[in-house]
Write a protein that binds this DNA or RNA. Sequence first.
DNA 1: TCCATTCAATTGACTTTATCAACTGAATGG
DNA 2: CCATTCAGTTGATAAAGTCAATTGAATGGA
Lengths: 320, 320
Amino acid sequence: MLPDVEPPTPIAAATMPPRDRSVERVRVFNRFYTRRLDLLDRGFLASPYTLGEVRILWELAHREGVSAADLSRELGIDPGQMSRTLGRLVGAGLIARVADAGDARRSTIALTAHGREVLAPLEAEQRRRVAAGLRGLTPEAVGRLVAAMADVERLLEPERAGDLMIRPHRPGDVAFVVARQARLYVDDFSFDERFEELISRVAADFLRDFDPRREASFIAEVDERIVGAVFVTRKDDEVAKLRLLHVESEMRGRGIGTRLVDACVRFARERGYRTLTLWTNDVLVEARRLYERAGFRLVASEPHRMFGPPLVGETWDLTL
Amino acid sequence: MLPDVEPPTPIAAATMPPRDRSVERVRVFNRFYTRRLDLLDRGFLASPYTLGEVRILWELAHREGVSAADLSRELGIDPGQMSRTLGRLVGAGLIARVADAGDARRSTIALTAHGREVLAPLEAEQRRRVAAGLRGLTPEAVGRLVAAMADVERLLEPERAGDLMIRPHRPGDVAFVVARQARLYVDDFSFDERFEELISRVAADFLRDFDPRREASFIAEVDERIVGAVFVTRKDDEVAKLRLLHVESEMRGRGIGTRLVDACVRFARERGYRTLTLWTNDVLVEARRLYERAGFRLVASEPHRMFGPPLVGETWDLTL
DNA sequence: TCCATTCAATTGACTTTATCAACTGAATGG
DNA sequence: CCATTCAGTTGATAAAGTCAATTGAATGGA
């Protein structure tokens, strides 16, 4: 009998609309990462505990006051399954159930000292395996990997983002911020290369003339990833200029812009400036709202086509 | 009985050495992505086929000449397990075994037409789920997500990278390249902000003065991610200058640099220049090798400290 | 040419996981 | 106060995971 078989279909990425192509790329990544995770998880094979058990132990090691229902919800495990697995773990003396004070149905699960002892070497082995996977990479590449992973996390679940840090710029940061701004305004507002040129030059001048006593940079960082920035430059003894404010789109609406603008205002006031001024464009509505709320007043506006599409340039001032 | 329980340990990221901190960040990402993949895989719940079966079907749909052993190796499934699962799938008429011509032990597995029919709606459902996950993102954010995923893949497994494309720059690309160069030279060679300033200004001037008849940009792209670049600018009618060559570290040693330099040489020759010149520094040994192999000759060198650490600036010329 | 070795594929035995449904006893909210 | 919801358990059954053993076919030197 000659079996009735079919030839495989290649993924014809090039001919798809961009959205579909992205979906396909994400699926490729998912399969790729499924296998990597699979390899890592096999690290637990050496131990007498199963992956499911270890996942529960890990969860308990890093959280407090967890119930069986919490675990099954969060690890995506069937409650019945969970009940049996927990039973086994209790039997082995790795975990203990504590009756909930307020709710007689619930009981809180926690690791015992023995459970912690069992988990420690498993975690160490996991860490060794992850570290081995990073072995071939330069520190720079490891940094990029971590940054790329942080991007994936933040883009898929903005609420997972860690705490915001605001710090001065370090070498390389200014160029990074310029690149992000260029990308943002090109993609969202179709600004052309004249905008890219302008901010590249602003950056070069800032780097050349930077005077830390009279000027400042504020880089907003989340999980070691730059998510926004702003600069204050000296125009003259009386007037400081706020420049290059931006916040990554997925991090907007969490007060980062406000904190950056506030930092500028505080700095300008502290250093004895009388006015803080800035130039922006009407299409940047979110930024305008920030300025307005910080007390800036629109003092001039003129239509222009400096960057391709018709815009209205606006000067905003804040008297300090 | 008062159970002997232990309080959880927070991940004290801040106090760790950077390498360990990176390992910890990777582990956090792994757990995060494990859950996401888990959610996606539940998409197959509606069908009468199990995840293992679908994974096999998917693999068969996109590859040719696969044996049972190949599948169990690549999907990380026990050969015994695989044998039984394949048996079930053959029984259901989704796949067929074809005896291998050369090796009587082996048999090649392939999808039947029916198998393809069964898989199609499952794949469509998967795509719908992935697309739903991207729904909340702007196109710009989707682009960043895909780019970040491509970074993760390329950094972890450079050999997975797709085909190289070389194209002219588009708005935003020059600023991006400047940012990558600044980061690279700051991290690897401790260049200071004067380097960042210099290349920002070079970029601004390039964008302002760009003359497509006499000048060119070559952006190397893999999987829609910029992995290298180089520019050719006009110095005078006789002399063209090669500028800002760089290749991302994880993509080196695959001929990308050579192809970029070749593109420059070809362009300069085509446009009637007599000489192609460039300025670089002794520490950039990989780049120097590229220039040498392309026929450039070192014509001048002078020590300097323009960017912080002591360097030897070098001028290389190629007579066209 | 032969034979120990390796390899593809299967089978057996057994444990654990996955999934669905049913059930108990305890909160909860009109 | 009572229908409803919820935490947790138990039962049944199919599938997955794991380890060991087996068959028959290649393979690579001695």
